[in-house]
Design a protein around this nucleic acid. Sequence first.
RNA 1: GCGCCCGUAGCUCAGGAGGACAGAGCAACGGUUUCCUAAACCGUAGGUCGCAGGUUCGAGUCCUGCCGGGCGCGCCA
Length: 591
Amino acid sequence: MRPIRRQIEQRVVDALAQAFGSSVADVDPQVRAAGDPQFGDFQSNVAMGLAKKLGRKPREIAEALVRALRIEDMCDPPEVAGPGFINLRLRADFLAGQLAAIQSDERLGVPRAVRPEHVALDFSSVNLAKEMHVGHLRSTIVGECLARVLEWLGHDVERINHVGDWGTQFGMLLQHVRETQPEVLETPDSFRVGDLEEFYRRAKARFDEDAAFADAARRAVVDLQGGDPGARTIWQAFCRESLRHCHEIYDRLGVRLEDVGESFYNEMLPGVVAELREMGLAVESEGAVCVFLEGFKNRAGEPLPMIIQKSDGGYNYDTTDLAAARYRIEKLGVRRLIYITDKRQRQHFDMLFAALRKAGWAGDDVSLEHIGFGMVHGEGGRPIKTREGGAIKLVSLLDEAEARARELLEANEKNPETARGFGAEEMAQVARAVGLGAVRYADLLHNLASDYTFSWDKMLAMDGNTAPYMMYAYARVRSIGRKAGLDFAALPAGLPIVIEHPSEVGLAKALLQFAEVIEQVAADLRPNMLTEYLYDLSRTFSTFYDRKTGVRVIDAEPEAVRLCRLRLCDLTARTLKRGLWLLGIETVERM
RNA sequence: GCGCCCGUAGCUCAGGAGGACAGAGCAACGGUUUCCUAAACCGUAGGUCGCAGGUUCGAGUCCUGCCGGGCGCGCCA
């Protein structure tokens, strides 16, 4: 089933053709959600824009359009208002029909993509030299969310962890392994590091203080790049161990990623440079091989190069990213490349995309998108740091989230009014879901482009637009089924749906918006549209279920009405669960 | 100096593709529980959308110029 707005658009397009002929064939019908409930649910603003084109008054156009509009099965008679707005109000029986049609649809009325795309979603992008810290959080959370949304719509998504497993700092680490755990050479699988961060700090300290070690570290880089078997063995052991740490976190967060190290592209790099030189795009400048692209300037106002081979012959991330993008397009057959990094890398990606286009490696049929997100600040506006000024480990942050969630839940257990009687296992499960959910939700709630302030108190609040509120809303709906003595899933598939009470109408409309929201999130890659929708749905449900503003449910009569309302509860629960799942948030049956 | 992003209520933030009087949450104030999870709901108050021009029938949204903040700008990623 298509989103309601799409259905309306089609009717307006048909009416335009009917009333004004082919001259308006390509005109946007300008169907929008109504700005104010008093104007109905949707409005078309097309008449005003058409006034000049058709040389008639906007109201006349609107009225002619309304006469041609065949929409009586969906809406009350359309009204022309103001300068030429066409206001549309959905009929309750139409809403009921739509809900009846999707009531046993696992996809809740969200259609699969008509043209599934092969997408490369590049996110998380850890560096193996160090442990994951808070800086990796946003890319990982946002990436997982967008991957789920795109996959659920039927797109084929490569979830790529573009792993930093190469570069000069590996010489230092390698040498440190060689000296502290020489047995790794014999039994590489046995290599373990309890605390990667500490390991890095020690290696770095030695590098800075011990000239002999620093020399050995530099030689280790040369060994590694030269393909020395011993160096490679240790390097592989280190990478494996570091990735194991990463995947502990990914598993905990329910994040699925395919690791592709930068080193994977090493052998393609000379070819990238050679081909760009052959095309005449790359030239030598100050000893480095550079691509100069229009519109990029340095401080002095001179052309800013994209350096693809350093003067020492080495390659850098521009080269690797070019090779990786090309590989994804040519070898994997990807047609939409999405990179999720912080917004400071914007210029790098602008240049990368420009170079890919210019080289012809990304044709017109390939979409290149950089999703740059803002910084996460600590309370007080400064970057989040430990007391010592270091980056906070991601694992510590997640531990704290769960611990704080548990404190709240335990406080509730002490209050007879809110106690649920959780056993140890359920407590742990709920604390985990709430803690991790809170961190995630707070991140996805904000517009990606904005910086935001990280606040435990705000994200764990029971009131307001938070994960605990959303999860509680879900648990509350689920408890209705239990209280009513039925399993929602056991409701008959073809229940007659009748929508009458204002709170039923409101809930029906909210439920039927889901498809449009998902479509938008996938197109614009903006998870906050989904959090906003889910929050609105929860509140609408609370109004529906409220003793003052809403309707009786469990004890409603007659039975047909009761079942119908229970079905609305069921649809709400499933929509919330699916929506939260798309955000990467687990639901619990009670809390 | 050039480029990118941002500036909306006391605070934290939304504002889709330009549309009708600018939204939410928190905080503040005031209501609602013989009744399905009150971890809820309802209401009140609070804003010259940084400033000034421009385009348009219509601008928080698009354009230009200022002011204020963040970030980036040749061999790190």
